[in-house]
Amino acid sequence: MAETLLDIRGLKTWFKTDDGMVRAVDGVDLRIERGETVGVVGESGCGKTVTARSVLKLIDMPPGRFEDGQILWQGRDLIPLPQDEMNKVRAREIAIVFQEPMTSLNPVYTVGDQIAEVIAQHQKLNKKQALEGAAEMLRLVNIPNPQRRIHDYPHQFSGGMRQRVMIAMALSCRPKLLIADEPTTALDVTIQAQILELMQEMKERFGMAIMLITHAMGVVAETCQRVTVMYAGKVVEEAPVRELFGSPRHPYTQGLIRSIPRVDRAATHKERLEAIPGTVPSLLEPPPGCRFAARCRFVTEVCTRAMPTMKEVSPGHFVRCVL
């Protein structure tokens, strides 16, 4: 068994709003081993982004707060860690790439300055050396003319190029874990493939683990070794990728997989693409019982009484369902 890098246990990140407490993340367990790619999937609002930001403690507090749980990074809990200790983990050990490359870079500094800022912070280099490091990073993510482009501002780059810059920035301190929060959602389809390919290439070069947050099941199938499915602030299923796609156990996972458009089948069987009926339930004082109950095809009376526990149905395959 490989070394465990990240082990999230029972994490609850809640937000205080005018209407009450929003339980965005409500008891999430997640494990990432060295060098593996773990997919976190679920629809918008299921808490995957909040989980990702919680790991780096990038949640605004207030209104957010850690209600419960642990975030163990190589055995050390990050939640009680003081600011300056946390800052040594950020970028150096865990780095993050966000969804919106258009707004994730500061418009008033050159791209080189922004990458150099990270390098200078963590590697005790002077500005000139850090800028050279930035140029090297741009070259690694396949941006042409890196020596010249470090002096350009973000608005002089296209969306795909900016995401490359973000990746370069994230990897500049060789982190052990890269959290990619829907890194391709905001990009054109052709660019999406390039960015995923780049991430794969970088992973092979640096050997880091990736936590890939996405709602695109296709992306997961292509890139991940293990998948965690989230629904309404809870993990509902976790399995190795083949197992998950081969025999999904949770009705929600089944629905997700069925809703992937498939060119081959659509053409031959004239099947209709299936959608999951209904919408995500309120995270304000959620009802007891399974959160998916209201949309579930197999719902029974048991489901609405108590939250089902996670159980292991086959080695490494966990599911939160009574079925």
Binding site: R53, L56, L58, D60, Q83, D84, M86, N87, K88, V89, R90, A91, R92, A95, I96, F98, E100, T103, S104, L105, N106, P107, V108, E117, V118, Q121, H122, M166, M169
Partner: peptide
């Protein structure tokens, strides 16, 4: 303060004071 690039800056681990002075105040 609530723009994405400020979160990016925080994720860099450069410390809150630098985040505020370089990325918030300047902008």
């Amino acid at each position: 303060v609530r723009l994405d690039y400020v979160t990016t800056a925080r994720a860099k681990g450069i410390g809150e004071r630098k985040v505020i002075s370089r990325h918030v105040v300047r902008n």
